[in-house]
Design a protein around this nucleic acid. Sequence first.
DNA 1: GGCAGATTGTTTTAAACGAAACGAAAGACC
DNA 2: GGTCTTTCGTTTCGTTTAAAACAATCTGCC
Lengths: 148, 148
Amino acid sequence: MTRFKLDHFLPYQIAVLSSRVSDGFARHYRDTYGISVSEWRVVAHLSQSDSVSVREIHKRVDMDKPKVSRAASRLETAGYVTKTVNPADRRLVELKLTGKGREMIEALSPIADAYQAKLEALLSDPEEFRRQIAQLSNELVSQPRVDD
Amino acid sequence: MTRFKLDHFLPYQIAVLSSRVSDGFARHYRDTYGISVSEWRVVAHLSQSDSVSVREIHKRVDMDKPKVSRAASRLETAGYVTKTVNPADRRLVELKLTGKGREMIEALSPIADAYQAKLEALLSDPEEFRRQIAQLSNELVSQPRVDD
DNA sequence: GGCAGATTGTTTTAAACGAAACGAAAGACC
DNA sequence: GGTCTTTCGTTTCGTTTAAAACAATCTGCC
């Protein structure tokens, strides 16, 4: 019986925290719009930058290529997003929010902000916490894989 | 083009951090012992408490029942764990580390500690960070599902 | 004892996943 | 132009997942 305390292990604690924090908001968009976390991320990113390629999202949003591709396809069939081949470079697929997609993000955006405010209200020093997260995260950027 | 900044969204930041932090150590036990995160969690918990039921792990380790059950089965076929029906209550399955399993956790445990130390060295105030995580996590304990 | 309800662990099902392979298109080089 | 390499997005393959259904066992109560 070796003594290793999982509940004091930082990666475990962060993983548990992450899934709880995520669930609190994921519930909203899952129940209301039927989208998943991956899809939420794509839409959220699309709300910042009008028209974006799959590749761009893959790089900016911490998801691998197939995951972005699939999320985009689901969002397209659900009518939240359009996919068009970029005529200048026909390898690229441009993703764009539809009216329905824009409505969704416009409804979700204030809820997300409120949720974030609620989270920060639970912390004694939100700014410091945020700083620590950013610092750790930056130190741990994984080496780019061989493929991409 | 609604303005919502995903990279400033706390749940997203934490999720990214979590996967990076987790990967740093998961790499070790995946490459060396061929086990996954779920399996690591089960073994790690078993190292604390000699013989434990699936249910116990499910409750203590933030994994749902099927996930624990499958992780346990994989660990059993890999020879790290034995499963025995509890004679006092034959619904219960007692999980126990084999010699091989104990060797594994004994090899991994110091690596885990070292990794944790490395993480904490990256933080200006590790104790404060830990405290904030615990606080947030506790506030967000999700309601128990209807089933279990 | 016997039977309704609760509990435990596994299995079923449909969906999602990661890794690798793939085809199509673009770029580099001669 | 032609060929080789790189890039981009999708698809394939096998595995894992969550949610629900399931069988087996136990408990409480008559």
